[in-house]
Each structure stands twice: as structure tokens, then as C-alpha cells.
């Protein structure tokens, strides 16, 4: 089997007395969509911060295309090709949509003209073509999520970390954005996504990791995860799986 794009090996991160990420190992295969799910406070976003260099792990290794990138700062991770979106969209509020994307585009295009063209193309690709000259703080929630994606995409990543890009969207907006994510994957970008919208996880992800209280408690295909009594208990409490009488959690 080929080297996984991302391989996390026994990574832990402690905040004072709280072990937020506890001995986590996971891997994402090249060109796949991997989902990371788990109840609130499970440590999913912390794990993303560790992968993207915003936090340093207390122990463990993070490998990207086989190379050890464990203690690299965020800007270097982005240069290597790891892009992340933020759970709470972080637009450059005072700038236009086009200028927002331009910041990311400049990473691979030092010349202004090329960067402007690249930013415009990414904007159109993500359906923000009509919004390019609007200030970012006038966008709707769904448009902000798209902008978040566009900025990350403009850095031309090979690994994209999506932190709840679907949260806060209504069903029709989710239906609109799911094909966008799938198209990115088809272009060869490996995607790791934190997601609470199970319907989308089921449709998109090839492989699912379940994180609870900082530890991986289950992994497998979406169907396997849905049938796992341990996962049901992590979400609903001890004994829930039994009480539900084996009913499928969906």
C-alpha cells in the first residue's frame, strides 16, 4: 500500500490536567475523504490544530507524505500543502471576497497579476463569482463557509482539513455544497473532515474515525460505525445501545 498522505502516530496533547488528545493514531489515504466524528469536546478541533501546526503535541509524531512535520509552524504546514478551515469562519472582515482569496492565492503565486487571476478562478469555482467585490462581512453564513473553503483552496493544498464546513447550513445549502467537496476529492485532494451532519458523513466519507474524550474509540466504514454500539454509547450515554434494543443509530 502506498504511503498515506497523513499519518498521525500516538499523538497526545495536554492542557493542564486535561488530556484533550490521548494517544491518537490515524491515517488518511491519498485522494480519500476521511471523516472525524465524535461528541462535543472530544478533541476533534484540537487534533486539527495539532495537524496544522497551531498547537504542538506533547508526544507523538505527525507524518505528511512520510516526512516528520510534528513541530512545524502553521505557515510552513500551509507551504507543504496542508490547508485548514476554521470551525468558526475566519474571514478577513474588512476586505472583499476577492481580496480574501487573494491572500491564499499569493502563497503559490508571488506575482500580483497571477495571484489575482488565480483567486478569481477559485472564487468562481466555489460559486462566489457574483460576490467577489463584496466586503466579506456582508456574506451569509453559507457564503462565509464557501469563502473559508475558497481561501484554503487558493493555497493549492494536497491535504484539506475541513472543520465543520456544513455546520449551521440548512438542508438545501448542504445539498449544494456536498458535490463541491466531492469534486475537490476527485481532483486528487485528500480531505479530512470534522462533521456533525451524519447524513453528509454517510454520503461522503470512505473511512470514519470516532473520537471521544480524546481517544479513538472506533474506526471503519460509515456503515460499520453506525452499527457500533460503542459509538452509540459515546453519544447517548452508557447503556444507550442496549436500551435502544439494537436499533440502528442514524
Amino acid at each position: 500500500m502506498a504511503e498515506p498522505v497523513l499519518a498521525i502516530e500516538r499523538v497526545s496533547r495536554r492542557f493542564g490536567g486535561l488530556l484533550a488528545v490521548n494517544d491518537v493514531s490515524l491515517a488518511a489515504r491519498d485522494g480519500s475523504i476521511t471523516a472525524l466524528i465524535g461528541p462535543n469536546g472530544a478533541g476533534k478541533t484540537t487534533l486539527f490544530a495539532l495537524i496544522s501546526g497551531f498547537l504542538k503535541p506533547n508526544s507523538g509524531t505527525i507524518r505528511y507524505h512520510g516526512a516528520d512535520v510534528t513541530n512545524e509552524p502553521p505557515h510552513r504546514m500551509a507551504r507543504y500543502g496542508i490547508a485548514r478551515t476554521f470551525q468558526i469562519a475566519q474571514p478577513f472582515a474588512g476586505l472583499t471576497v476577492h481580496e480574501n482569496i487573494l491572500v491564499g492565492a499569493h502563497l503559490r503565486h508571488p506575482a500580483r497579476r497571477a495571484a489575482i487571476a488565480a483567486a478569481e478562478q477559485v472564487g468562481h469555482e466555489l460559486g462566489l463569482g457574483a460576490r467577489l467585490d463584496r466586503p466579506a462581512n456582508t456574506l451569509t453564513v453559507a457564503e462565509r463557509k464557501r469563502l473559508e473553503l475558497a481561501k484554503a483552496l487558493a493555497t493549492q493544498p494536497t491535504l484539506l482539513l475541513l472543520d465543520e464546513v456544513l455546520a449551521g447550513l440548512n438542508p438545501s445549502e448542504i445539498r449544494d455544497i456536498v458535490p463541491v467537496i466531492r469534486a475537490l476529492c476527485r481532483r486528487g485532494i485528500t480531505i479530512v473532515m470534522i462533521e456533525h451532519v451524519m447524513q453528509a458523513v454517510m454520503r461522503l466519507a470512505e473511512h470514519v474515525f470516532v473520537l471521544a474524550e480524546g481517544r479513538i474509540i472506533a474506526e471503519g466504514s460509515p456503515a460499520q460505525i453506525a452499527a457500533d454500539p460503542g459509538v452509540v454509547e459515546a453519544y447517548l450515554g452508557r447503556g444507550a445501545a442496549e436500551k435502544l434494543g439494537g436499533a440502528r443509530a442514524n
Binding site: A83, F92, L95, K151
Partner: peptide, 16 residues
């Protein structure tokens, strides 16, 4: 300007 507007977001986009 990206640093001024949002330092964390700038970092995530490869800005040192």
C-alpha cells in the same frame, strides 16, 4: 493587511 485583519487566518494560509 491579512495579518491586520486576522492573524490566525493569515497563518493558516501560509503567511509567516
Amino acid at each position: 493587511i491579512a495579518v491586520r485583519e486576522n492573524e490566525d487566518a493569515a497563518m493558516a494560509l501560509g503567511v509567516n
